[in-house]
Amino acid sequence: MVSINYDNEVQEMEAEAEVEAEVEAEAEVEMEAEVEVERTSRYKEFLKYFFRNKAAVIGASIIGLLILCAIFAPFITEYAYDKQELSNMLKPPSKEHFFGTDEFGRDVFSRTIYGARVSLTIGLVAVGLSMAFGVMMGSLAGYYGGVTDYIISGITDIAWAFPTTLLAIAIIASIGPGLMNVMVAIALVYWSGYARLVRGSFKALKEQEFVEAVRALGYSDSRIIFRHILPNALAPVIVLTTLSIPRAILVESSLSFLGLGAQPPIPSWGSIMNSGRAYLVEAPWIALFPGIMIALIVLGFNLFGDALRDTLDPRLRE
C-alpha cells in the first residue's frame, strides 16, 4: 500500500532545526545586551514608557496644571469670584483683569479659575462613576451572555434611546438640583455607552483561544474577567473616557444654564460661557476664556488617554 519515509524526513528536520537553533542562540546573545527589567520595578517601567511619549507629557502637564489651578484657586486669584463691581462691567482684558470683566463687573479670570473646581470635579467624578458601572454591566453581559445579557442589554438600549441632556434633566427633575445630583445624572446617562462597548469586546475576546486556555486550566470566572479579558478590552474604554470627560463638562454647563447644576453665583465653565453668550458681540472675552479652558482640557485628556492606551499595550511600546 502506502509507505512513507518518515525517519529520513525527521533527520533532515532535526539538522535544519539545529542550524536554526544556532541562529536563534546568536540572536539571544544580542538580546541579552538589552536592559534587564526587574519585576519589582514594573511600575517605574510603566512610567518610563509612558513619559517617553511626548504627547503623554503634554497631556499630563495640561491636566496637572488645571488641577493645580482648581486646588489653589484662592491663592492664584486677586478678586473673589462673586465680587461685583458695577462701575467696571464688561471691561476688556487688562492688567487689572487678565480675562476682562463680565456684565456684573466680576473678574472673569477669577471665575474661570474657580470654575475649574466645579467642571473638573463633574468631569472626573461623573465619568468615573459611569465608567465603573458601565464596565461592570458590560462585562457581566458579555461574559455570561444568555438571560443576563438579555436583561442588561435591554436596559442599556432603553438608556441609549433617550437624548443625553433630556434624560439628565429628567433625572435631576426627580432627584432635585445640585452638583452632586448632576454627577449622578450624568453617570446614569453615560454608563450605557460603556456597557455596550465593553459587552462587544467581551463577546469577541471570550471566544479567543487564550481565554479558552485559562478556562481549561481551571481559573475562576472573576479571574478570567478581571485579569485576562478586561486588560485586553481596555483600549476603547480609555478612548471613550477621554471623549466623555469633556462631554460631561458640557452637559453640566447646559444643566447649569437651565438652573439645574451649579447654582449662581458659583461659577462653572459652562455657566460662565452661557452667561457670556448674551454679550458675544460686545464682550467676547467672557465666553472665550472658559471656552479655551474646555478646549484645553479636551486636548489634555485626549493626549493623555492615547498615550495611556499605547503604554498599556505591550505590543505598542517602543
Binding site: A213, L217, P231, P314
Partner: peptide, 19 residues
Amino acid sequence: RKKMQLVFQDPFASLNPKM
C-alpha cells in the same frame, strides 16, 4: 482540570497578549 490539560493549535492566540 489540574490533571487534564489542553494545548491549542495556534500559539499566537492561546497566550494573553497583555501578560
